[in-house]
C-alpha cells in the first residue's frame, strides 16, 4: 500500500511538472483550462497523503468549479491575447506544429529553471509537517505560479498563475491547519480570484469588440 502511494506520489509529481509547463507555455485557452483541471486532480492525489480523502475531494471540487468558471468565460469571450497579425515578427509566432516560438522556448526554459530551483529548495529547505514529495510539489507549484504571474498581464493568465501558487501553498498549509473552516476560506479565496479575473477578462473582450467596431 505504501509503495503504491509512493509510486502515485511520484507519478503525480511528474504530471505536475507537465501540467505546469503547459500552463506556462501553451497559448490555447482550452489546453490551459484542461491543464489546470488535471493539476487540481494531481493536487488532490497528493493531498490524500496528508489529509482525509473527503477534505481533499472538497478541495478538488472547488478547483474544478474554478476551471468551469474559466471555461465558461473563455468560451464566451474567445481566446486570450492580441489577435494574430500577418505582419507579426517571427519571435512572436505561436506554436507551429511541434516547434515553439522564441517566446515559447524562453517560457519553457524559465519553467525548467523554476523546476531546478524548486528541486534545490526542496532539498535544502524542507517544509515542516509534510513529506518530501509534497515539499517539492509545493515549491514547484508556487514557483510556476509566480512565473506565470510575472510573465503575463492578461487577467486570465494572471488568474491561472495566482491559483497555481495558491494550490502550492494549500498543499503545505493544509498539513499545518487541516480544519474545514480554513479549507473553506482558502477555497473562497481561490473562487474569488477566478470570478475577479473572469470579470476583467470580460471587460477586456468587451473593449476589444468596441475597438473592433470603431
Amino acid at each position: 500500500m505504501g509503495q503504491i502511494g509512493d509510486l502515485l506520489a511520484t507519478l503525480s509529481l511528474g504530471s505536475l511538472v507537465a501540467t505546469g509547463a503547459i500552463l506556462v507555455v501553451a497559448r490555447k485557452w482550452r489546453l490551459k483550462v484542461l491543464a489546470l483541471a488535471i493539476q487540481y486532480l494531481l493536487v488532490v492525489l497528493l493531498l490524500t497523503r496528508i489529509i482525509r480523502v473527503e477534505l481533499a475531494a472538497v478541495k478538488g471540487l472547488t478547483g474544478w468549479l474554478i476551471c468551469a468558471v474559466f471555461y465558461v468565460t473563455e468560451r464566451r469571450v474567445g481566446s486570450p491575447g492580441p489577435p494574430v497579425s500577418s505582419s507579426r515578427s517571427r519571435g512572436d509566432r505561436p506554436w507551429r506544429g511541434e516547434v515553439l516560438s522564441a517566446k515559447g522556448w524562453f517560457y519553457l526554459l524559465s519553467a525548467v529553471l523554476v523546476f531546478v530551483l524548486a528541486y534545490g529548495a526542496a532539498l535544502r529547505l524542507p517544509l515542516p509537517e509534510v513529506p518530501a514529495e509534497i515539499t517539492l510539489a509545493c515549491y514547484l507549484l508556487a514557483g510556476l505560479g509566480l512565473l506565470i504571474v510575472s510573465l503575463n498581464e492578461n487577467p486570465f493568465e494572471v488568474g491561472l498563475g495566482l491559483l497555481t501558487t495558491l494550490a502550492g501553498f494549500d498543499l503545505f498549509y493544509v498539513g499545518l491547519e487541516p480544519s474545514l473552516a480554513v479549507a473553506g476560506l482558502v477555497g473562497a479565496v481561490g473562487f474569488m480570484i477566478a470570478l475577479a479575473t473572469a470579470y476583467l477578462r470580460s471587460a477586456q473582450a468587451a473593449e476589444g469588440m468596441e475597438g473592433g467596431a470603431a
Binding site: E153, P155, L162, Y173, L176, L200, E207
Partner: peptide, 24 residues
C-alpha cells in the same frame, strides 16, 4: 466600458501573494 484595469489585477496579485506569508 474601459479595458481591464491593470491596477485591479495588480492589487489582487499582491494581496494574494501576501496571504501565504501571513498564514505561515
Amino acid at each position: 466600458g474601459a479595458g481591464p484595469s491593470r491596477g485591479a489585477v495588480r492589487y489582487l496579485t499582491f494581496t494574494i501573494l501576501a496571504l501565504p506569508g501571513l498564514l505561515v
